[in-house]
Design a protein around this nucleic acid. Structure first.
Length: 589
RNA sequence: GGGGCCGUAGCUCAAUUGGUUAGAGUACCGGACUGUCGAUCCGGUGGUUGAGGGUUCGAGCCCCUUCGGCCUCGCCA
């Protein structure tokens, strides 16, 4: 070992010992006669002191040290002189009096300093990721990530789960996200697909009798990125046989409770609250509602029918909805200009036709440019329905149901943040259950699986399947944390006939089904037990438990929004020879 | 594919309505200093204002194109 201790562990009890530390030069404070250097590693910082007794040569070496040089120092641990202890430093009681210094490696002048107060721009951080990762915040997050993974592995091991790896090179399956493809050299003209999830493999494992499977699995989806979405991400993936939806949720309840307790010191009441999909959409306009605050959607469609205001009346009469939210006490907060911005937001981002608003005055009087189109009596009933009080701001959207959901969910989230309706460290965990089996795909003109095509309908909805697929509910459950979908799972179809029936409904003909996942259909005929599972987004969990607002900060080497790696330059061009071997030609367009 | 914000010294930022030689802090270089801890004090170097084009007597600022980063809609079983 080139060191005897780390830079975070020396205390008063070590006084008198001769130690050797290795680390990076964090700061240097040169007082001519005496020179201080804070030596840093991932465990902490220790002040090392160069003084005349260190020897002239040693001092001159020390004097030339600069930020991020890598050195080792050997010397005695000494108490700091009275009144020079540093209470902000874990090692602040002591210092190391340098006897010998070795410069192990010089650093160029770094474009960013790990201990700097201001965080550098993100592109710089990504380009020099090795410097960025030296920052304590990043270390804290990666350590949290490690702790979460360790906790998960321990938890599932205790429950008898077996960790089994599944292939990264698989085959492309229809539906779902766009695949990342890998050309085969041995089989020219064919491609592997990187897994969007280990879905099929884990079902096969159930059929194979490994009734409790778990894996921390890398997944790939070639879709556009977001603050909470990377093309390459990690899932805690699990599957169980001989279970029902409640059993899966109970297992995850236990995991989440342990995480909340050990990582946040929060005692969660179990089971976690559940809400149906229909209820979530009606009350919040979204299938992953942020339940840290209220401000629920209120339906006034019936009242709108009585209004002279054409936008409201026509929408309501033509089967649309008029719904709104009450931003309590926010009337003062939003000027006409501020409301214009909110209007642009709902029209621009969600395609709403407009945003109606009322400011609530004394005596529940509703004031708005459109107020004259309503009778006083009707305004009073709207105020009553929306629980309006003086100082409130009522925001309403009249549109197709889907638009009112999207627009009001967007508004609700935005206002929740802007009005500070939740505390920074506040956490809310819940389940959303009973998702629809299918949703209608306008583009393709057919039914699409809402979750995935292996999802089992609820037993009581089986008879709806052929004729009323829209009403058919799935045995599906999503874990929702602070308005994020933290994970989702389903009970699977374990009957080949039912699976074929669902494929048919989805417009996957027998031939395609046989070609793409015939192996699953085959396997289902060799003794498939009832089974189901779930996958949690690990990166998102780290983000949520770490109180971070983007997923890149939870990943050591993330991609930019354009799916590039600024450090390595990936993706990059390859040699013509490589392409030839793969039988791949780049088209000029 | 659409909408929005941003790009000025190594870094973080400023620069009046389009107007003189583009500034500050920090880093870096040099000097002073024996108890600092974001050390301090003095001095200095450092700029194709992302790139290209245009408008103008004059562009960091206005227009167009382009590159890059971020947010977002679509997309994400």
């Amino acid at each position: 070992m080139l060191r005897s201790h780390t830079c975070g562990e020396l205390r008063a009890e070590h006084i008198g010992e001769e130690v050797t530390l290795g680390g990076w030069v964090d700061t240097h404070r040169d007082h001519k006669g005496v020179l201080f250097i804070d030596l840093r590693d991932r465990y902490g910082k220790t002040q090392v002191v160069f003084a005349p007794e260190s020897g002239q040569e040693t001092v001159s070496v020390g004097r030339a040290l600069r930020s991020e040089d890598v050195i080792s120092v050997t010397g005695k641990v000494a108490p700091r002189p009275e009144d020079t202890e540093n209470p902000d430093l874990a090692t602040g009681q002591i210092e190391v009096r340098v006897r010998e210094v070795k410069v192990l490696n010089r650093s160029k002048v770094p474009p960013m300093k790990p201990s700097a107060k201001e965080q550098p721009s993100e592109d710089l951080r990504l380009r020099y990721r090795y410097l960025d990762l030296r920052r304590p915040e990043m270390q804290k997050t990666l350590i949290l990530r490690h702790r979460i993974m360790k906790l998960m592995r321990d938890y599932f091991d205790e429950l008898g789960f077996i960790d089994i790896e599944t292939p990264i090179l698989g085959r492309s399956t229809p539906e779902g996200a766009r695949d990342y493809l890998v050309p085969s050299r041995v089989q020219p003209g064919t491609f592997y697909a990187l897994p969007q999830s280990p879905q099929l493999y884990k079902q096969i494992l159930m059929i194979a009798g490994y009734d409790r499977y778990v894996q921390i699995a890398r997944c790939f989806r070639d879709e556009d990125l977001r603050a909470d979405r990377q093309p390459e991400f990690t899932q805690l993936d699990l599957e169980m046989a001989f279970v029902q939806a409640d059993d899966i949720m109970a297992v995850i309840d236990g995991l989440v409770a342990r995480m909340a307790k050990q990582l946040l010191g929060i005692e969660l009441a179990l089971p976690l609250p559940r809400m149906t999909y229909d209820e979530a959409m009606e009350r919040f306009g979204h299938d992953a509602p942020d339940l840290r605050f209220g401000m629920e959607l209120v339906d006034v469609s019936d009242l709108a029918k009585e209004a002279e205001f054409r936008v409201f009346r026509d929408t309501a009469e033509q089967g649309g909805r008029v719904r709104g939210i009450n931003a309590k006490g926010a009337a003062e907060r939003y000027s006409r200009k501020g409301i214009d911005e909110l209007t642009n937001y709902v029209t621009g981002d969600f395609g709403a036709k407009g945003l109606a608003w009322f400011k609530v005055g004394d005596g529940r009087r509703l004031a708005s440019p459109i107020a004259k189109n309503f009778s006083d009596e009707l305004l009073a009933r709207i105020a009553e329905r929306m629980d309006a009080e003086s100082g409130d701001l009522l925001l309403l959207v009249a549109d197709k149901w889907e638009i009112t959901c999207k627009a009001l969910n967007g508004l609700r989230r935005r206002l929740g943040a802007e009005l500070g309706l939740y505390q920074p460290g506040q956490m809310h965990f819940s389940w959303v259950v009973e998702f629809p089996m299918f949703e209608y795909d306008e583009e393709e003109g057919g039914w699409a699986a809402m979750h995935h095509p292996f999802t089992s309908p609820r037993p009581q909805d089986l008879e709806l399947l052929p004729d009323q697929p829209a009403k058919c509910r799935a045995q599906a459950y999503d874990l929702v944390i602070n308005g994020f979908e933290a994970g989702g799972g389903t009970i699977r179809i374990h009957d080949q006939k039912l699976q074929s029936q669902v494929f048919q409904l989805l417009g996957i003909d027998t031939e395609t089904a046989a070609e793409r996942f015939g192996f699953l259909l085959d396997a289902l005929q060799f003794g498939a037990p009832p089974h189901g599972g779930i996958a949690l987004g690990l990166d998102r969990l780290v983000m949520l438990f770490g109180g971070l607002d983007n997923i890149r900060d939870c990943i050591a080497f993330p991609k930019t929004q354009r799916a590039t790696d600024l450090m390595t330059g990936a993706p990059g061009e390859v040699d013509k020879k490589q392409l030839r071997e793969l039988g791949v030609k780049i088209s000029k367009e």
